[in-house]
Structure formats: C-alpha cells, structure tokens
Design a binder for these strands. Sequence first.
DNA 1: GCCGTTTTCGGCCCGACTGTTTTCAGTCG
Length: 574
Amino acid sequence: MTNADIAACLREMALFLDMTGVEFKPRAYEKAAHAIEALDGAVSELYASGGVKALAKLPGVGKGIAERIGEMVQTGTCRDLEDMRRETPVNIRDLTAIDGIGPKMVKALYQDLGVRTVADLEQAARSGSIRGLPHFGEKTETRILKSIGFLRQSQGRLPLGMVLDLARDIEARLAGVRGVRQAAVAGSIRRRRETVRDFDFLVVADDPETVTDFFVSMPEVAHVHGKGSTKTMVRLRSGMDADLRVVPAECWGAALNYFTGSKDHNVALRRIAIEKGWKLNEYGLFEGERAIAGCTEEEVYDALGLQYVPPELRENTGEIEQARAGRLPRLIEPGSLRGDLQTQTAWSDGANSIEEMVAAALACGLEYIAITDHTHSLAMMRTDDAKLMEQMEAIARLNRELDGGFRVLAGAEVNINKDGSLDVSDELLARLDVVGIAVHSHFNLPRGEQTQRIIRAMENPHADILFHPTGRKVAQREACDVDIDAVIAAAKRTGTVLEIDAYPDRMDLKDEHVRKTVAAGVPLVIDSDAHRAAHMRFPEDFGISIARRGWATANDVINTLPVDEFLAHLKGGN
DNA sequence: GCCGTTTTCGGCCCGACTGTTTTCAGTCG
C-alpha cells in the first residue's frame, strides 16, 4: 500500500468513527492520516525497517494506530476497518464527498432509508423520501441533488493534480524501454487541462512489441482492452483508461499534434491545410502522396504558415488567428517564478515550520516567500493579533539569520467577513509586508452581494492580493456566484493583485479568468497555497500551466520579479 | 486514540452557518 492508500484508509476510519458520535478518536485518525501524507519516505519501508515502534514515533501516531498501519502494510487492510464496513455497509467516502453530507447524515440515511451509495441517495432525494426524516427537509433534498449533479458533471474526469505525477512517471518509464526513441504523454494532460479523462501516450520504437508488452504489464494496469502493433488500450486500477500509440519516427510531430488536440484546434489546422490544397492527419502533412512535414510539430506549424502554438493554447479560442498573424504571446516559462506569496505553516493549519517552508522554497529555486497563516475568525486556527505579532518577530529574526540569502515576508491570509470588512485591524495590516485577503465562508450569497463584498474588501488600502478569487474547488465545489469582470475591474481600480492559486484542488483563478485578467492589464501572482513543504512545487507543476492557458507572459505575473521590485508593485509601494 | 516543562489521567479547536426547529444537530473551515 502506498502512503496515500494508508492515509485514505485512516480517513475512512475517521469517518466511520465520526458516524458513531465517539469523541476525539476521529480527529486522532485524521491527524495520523495527515502525518502519513506529510511523510517523505514510504510508510511500508519505515515499517519494514523499524516495525510498529518506528511508526509510533510519527507525530499523531501512537501504539494503536501504528499497529493498524502495520496491519495495512502487511495485509492491505485492517480488521477494524473491515468491521466498520460490515457494520455500516455504505460508501462513506463518496457520500460524504457530497456537499453538506457528513457522517451523521450518512448514518441516518442508511438506517432509515437504506441509502448505501450515491445512486441510492439520488433516488431517495428524487422521490422526496428524505424530507420525512427528522432534521431533513425540502431544502436539504434540493441541495443534495444539486451537489450530486455537480459531481456527476465532472464524473469520469479527474483533476490534473491527481494524474500528472503518474503520467510523467509512465512517460519516463516508456522512454526507458529498450528501443524507444521518443516518448510523450499527449492529450489533455499535455495541454494541462484542469481535468483529465484518460491518458494518451505516444512512442517511437524500433520494436513496437517490446514497448507494447511493457505497457500492458505495468503494475497499474488492471485490464487490457486491446493490444495491437500500433494501438494498445488498457484500464488502470484507478479506473482511468490509458492508450499507447506506436508511431514511425517520420510521423512523430504530426502524431503528437494530432493526439494532443484539442479536437477543435486540430479541425482548424486541417482546414488550413485544405485551403492550401493539402491534407493533414496523424501521419503528416501531405500534398497528394508527398509528405511535406511530419517529423516535428514545429515543422507542421511552420509549413501551415503558423507560429508554433504551445500545447496549452490549443483550444481553438483565437490562437490560430494570432499564430497566423505572428502575434502569439511569449508565454511565461517554467522556472521563472522567484517568490511565493501564499504559504501556511504550523502556526495555523500547515504541517511545517517557517524554517522548513523556507528550506523547501530554496530547494524550488525561490528567492522569497510570504508566510500567510489564517487569521482568527477561522475558528479552527486559534490565532490572534498577539500571535500574529509574535510571528512577525520570528520572521524578522529569521531574516537576520538568512542575512539576505533569502527573504521571508510577513503576511497573513486575512478572512473577508460577510460584509466585506476584514478580520484584522488596519493598524496591524499596515505592519505586514503582504496582506492576502480571502473568502472562507458565505459561499452562497447572491451574485450582487457576493461581488460587492469582495470588492469592498479589495478597497481596503492594505489588501494586496485577493487569494483564490472565486472559491471554487476543482470537481468538488462550484465557484462563488461572483461577477468576475467586476472583480477584475475593481482590481485595476484599487491596485489589488489577483492570485492564481496553484493548489491542485483549487486552480483559482482558472485559465479563462486569467485570460480576462491579463487582457485587463491587472497583475497576477502564482502561489502554492502550500500547507506543507512538498506543496511548494505546485506553482511549477500547475500554476505556470494555468497562467499559460490564460495567455499570460512573465510580465503579467509579478512574482517573477526580484523581491524589492515585487513589493513596489503592491499597494502603497511597500 | 494521542499526548505529556500538566506525564499514566484528563484534555483534546471551536465559532458560524444552515436547515431544521422553537433549542439544536450537523457541517464546514
């Protein structure tokens, strides 16, 4: 079992324990899951080398949970979890993923209506039988159906953050197979769409059979749909399909282009080929029988009279016209970020110390980060003004130790109240280097009220950056109903920076909003929203891609600047 | 179930909101 598998089991146990109403145990299991996820090495190796004793040394893991983890490593599950599943045979993970449904409601729905799955729940809600239960009413039924509808919309598509590592890993493994000369992941992953339906891998190989055999025998493969000399299709254990295509070297560029898509972009390219009396397909660009181009993507675009179009722009939303006119923007490149303006530490709900976050930032090649722990109106946080000032002092001390080698900025993720006021006094905000403001509650206000609330917060003279501006969660929760154009206009007027929150669950702003922001000339930052050291790579893995999909150049993203120039772009010039 | 300059028991995060109720349970962050 991977660390993620073990953490998932622990979280499932926490949900079942929550269901019983037992106190504190659920939090203990959650904490342990958190610790497992934060671990650098594999739990199974830790167990192999040090046994239960080594596991129990992890923070939040004691003897009891350590033994259960040991059992999971050995058997793939643990008896307590199996008992819980037997006792209440419900799909608790899927059911609690529905907005507004928690363990207690799952229990009531199971006991009174026999609801075990999301499908059962939907049927119960449609038939109107839920409203008869104590504490349930018509509004709850409506909300359940709305939430199921939203989840279904994204069904079959997984967030990019859940698949990118695996895609890169398989790509690297394919590249290492004997006789493989080229290997790439294509499709929507290469375009860095925020959700992904399947994997498309492309290789050039001297011996197609060797790479095909390798592909179908990867440990992730659960089922082989079909296996041929040029196309092989499998289903992975995760439920996603993966295709492998073996193409001749002279077709590589045309095939990569064809399988990267998007479909609309490809149709537009083929139309241009037809205009010129040619034919474009996955084997190349042809005039009659004669191949004009096909080895590389660059030569295909060039032959069609177009600038090379980066994969992130291939959605047929104007890129063809711009490429034809030679006016594509020079997109922001990986490696161009110097700072990260949203990071949480153990001072609030993060896992690591400020020093550990700094070390992670240095490892990512950054020159500065802002520490932006949550402020006190989020009750989970238990921070207050005194604690914030204490942290500012700690940061000042650390900066003296770092002696110019790296800069830690004192900041906060300040909560926006329902009326648009902030939950930290202006006097204190004035002392911070970076003030991020963010919505964490009242997601369902009417559009006008929500928009005005956010704009009012942006009007605060200390509010530097609007964090995760729309509040959406990829494939989990819809964005707030907010007039994004009005927010962008307010950002321009007030000098507030808008954030691309690169946390894979958020990706907020999303690509099309980034494009609007760029068009309006409003500066952006790309942040990790890191809650542990390992999250510091989110901007590089996801944030840059969102910015590129939003047509952003390095000039549009101000944390590409050295720290002093960056600070000069904030309100009041800091 | 975990933890300990409070150490083998007793505390553990908690306020706001929602939908449902007339006093509160459940969810969320």
